[in-house]
Amino acid sequence: MWVLIILLLLLLTYLILFWIIPFSLNGAIYDPSRKKDVEKMVEVAEIKGNEVSADLGSGDGRVVIAFAKKGIQAHGFEINPLLVLLSKINIRREGLKGKAFIHWKSFWKADLSRYDIITVFQVDFAMNKLEKKISKELKPGAKVISNQWTFPKWKHSKYEKGIYVYESENYPAS
């Protein structure tokens, strides 16, 4: 009996942390990007010099870590405290402290104007709202790289194996 109660509590905790909270805050569930998709995102970013990247809904930090390994400052925004902790452990394990940063914060409340590269792996219903936010905040010359999902109004400048690249000069501010 106690085992069943513990299992139900664990299932309920999982559902709350990884499904209900993300959806209620207009974001995606925790669905980590595949290694090949992360590699493609880094490749199509065409990283230059001292750029700064941000991953919106950074999950376990794998995209942030991949960009930091390429030598740029990489930030992630994540609302799930367990994933924030896991990301910080992963960053420390990779020896990227001071290059990779995870913020326990909703990306909806973050100012994105300082970032040169924004990466996203969101769901369809979030992309419309996100398109409006990014249009208002993104600086000239910045890129947005989306894993699998497209923005409703923007035209991508590049598409490779499920990864879309949008460049700031190709879309107007809202």
Rank of each mutant, 00 (worst) to 15 (best):
W108F: 10
W108H: 08
K109H: 12
A110K: 11
A110E: 14
A110F: 07
D111T: 03
D111V: 05
L112H: 02
S113A: 05
S113C: 09
R114P: 01
R114K: 14
R114V: 10
Y115R: 07
D116V: 07
D116F: 02
D116A: 05
I117P: 02
T119Y: 00
V120F: 06
V120H: 01
F121L: 03
F121D: 00
F121K: 01
Q122L: 12
Q122N: 10
Q122S: 09
Q122F: 02
D124G: 08
D124L: 05
D124Y: 04
D124T: 10
D124N: 09
D124C: 00
F125N: 07
F125E: 10
N128L: 15
N128V: 14
K129L: 14
K129W: 10
K129G: 15
K129M: 13
E131G: 11
E131V: 14
E131N: 08
K132V: 15
K132P: 14
K132E: 15
K133G: 08
K133E: 07
I134L: 15
I134V: 15
S135I: 14
K136I: 15
E137F: 12
E137W: 03
E137S: 11
E137N: 11
K139R: 13
P140G: 08
G141Q: 06
G141V: 11
A142R: 03
A142G: 13
K143V: 04
K143N: 01
K143R: 14
K143P: 04
K143Y: 03
V144R: 02
V144N: 02
I145D: 03
S146E: 02
S146D: 01
N147Y: 06
N147M: 00
N147E: 01
Q148G: 00
Q148A: 00
W149A: 00
W149I: 04
W149E: 09
T150K: 14
T150E: 13
F151E: 09
F151M: 11
P152K: 07
P152Y: 10
P152M: 11
P152F: 12
K153E: 14
W154S: 09
W154T: 01
S157A: 13
K158E: 09
K158A: 09
K158H: 08
Y159I: 09
E160N: 08
E160K: 13
G162R: 04
G162M: 07
G162K: 04
I163V: 11
I163C: 05
I163F: 04
Y164Q: 01
Y164T: 02
Y164W: 12
Y164K: 03
